[in-house]
């Protein structure tokens, strides 16, 4: 990719100046439109509740307050929701990372009996809409006695085939030279040792991508957590908690914005810090 970039700079004919100005103007306006709702949410979360309807459109609030945060954090359970989101995300991501790394390793490196069939089954799962499995998953979690618990959210959140991650890991592992494995074997490493001490460290770029993408997906998950915590508000994550909050406080928009910001800001920070991994992972999904 480095090579293409430098080549492009050298060879691509320069656009005439007016053309470049138009393109920049279009992109600038669109970028502002695209981030406006998010910026508006964050700014509104600092506006005093009483001023909200007076200055709802202004991006520079007359006065700034943290009262909205204090209100939703302690009175509206957002401290609990936040903790739940963190716990569910951390453990779901760990589970998914371990299982897709292991499965991707053997799918990418070994032609074992049944590999083709497994791949086909996993790939076909892309088309299954969540709505078609929602009711049975609810029943399964209920049968495990995990309805309205964080563990129920963690396990069901880690469910599914994670096709994108399997493809990322398997295509990565298929490029690792055989010599490494043979050297490990000569050193007396068995199958497990070779995987844990040679392969896992090698796969850290893919692991990082998987951690970031799965964190975003779990943090943002709504449909499953919504139905699995209907009976127990204290197990809700931020995505579900704000929906319930809005149902009860329809006009508390500064509170809604504060709750929304609590959910959005961490994920935006993570994204901006790790955007390379995220974008490469997504791009890899189409190429694979």
């Amino acid at each position: 990719m480095e090579a293409t970039q430098t080549r492009k700079i050298k060879k691509n004919p320069r656009l005439p100046r007016p053309g470049r100005i138009v393109i920049n103007a279009v992109l600038l306006v669109c970028s502002l439109i695209w981030i406006y709702p998010i910026v508006w949410t964050i700014i509104s979360s600092f506006k005093p509740q009483a001023d909200f309807f007076k200055e709802q459109l202004t991006l520079l609030p007359g006065s700034v307050t943290l009262e909205n945060y204090a209100r939703v954090w302690s009175k509206a359970n957002f401290a609990v929701y936040f903790l739940n989101s963190v716990i569910v995300t951390v453990f779901s991501v760990l589970l998914v990372l371990i299982m897709t790394n292991m499965a991707g390793y053997v799918l990418g490196r070994y032609k074992f009996v049944g590999r083709g069939l497994l791949m086909a089954i996993f790939l076909s799962s892309i088309c299954i809409p969540l709505v078609s499995t929602l009711i049975p998953v609810y029943q399964i979690v209920k049968g495990m006695g995990l309805l309205g618990t964080r563990l129920g959210l963690i396990l069901s959140g880690a469910g599914g085939a994670h096709v994108v991650f399997l493809l990322l890991f398997s295509s990565y592992y298929s490029t690792v030279p055989n010599e490494l494995e043979e050297a490990a074997k000569i050193d007396g490493c068995g199958f497990m040792r070779t995987f844990v001490s040679v392969m896992v460290p090698l796969s850290s770029p893919i692991s990082t991508t998987v951690i970031i993408m799965e964190s975003l997906w779990t943090w943002n998950a709504f449909q499953l957590p919504l139905i699995l915590t209907l009976n127990n508000p204290t197990a809700r994550t931020l995505a579900v908690g704000l929906y319930a909050f809005k149902g009860e406080n329809t006009v508390d928009w500064t509170g809604i914005c504060a709750g929304g910001a609590i959910a959005m800001v961490p994920i935006i920070v993570v994204f901006i810090a790790f955007q390379k991994f995220f974008i490469n992972g997504m791009a890899g999904a189409v190429k694979g």
Partner: peptide, 21 residues
């Protein structure tokens, strides 16, 4: 980054905020 940011924010929360917008 600006054009991509909506993808990473929670859909359910965006939906609620958009009700006002």
């Amino acid at each position: 980054v600006s054009l991509f940011v909506p993808v990473v924010v929670t859909a359910s929360i965006v939906g609620i905020v958009m009700v006002f917008i």
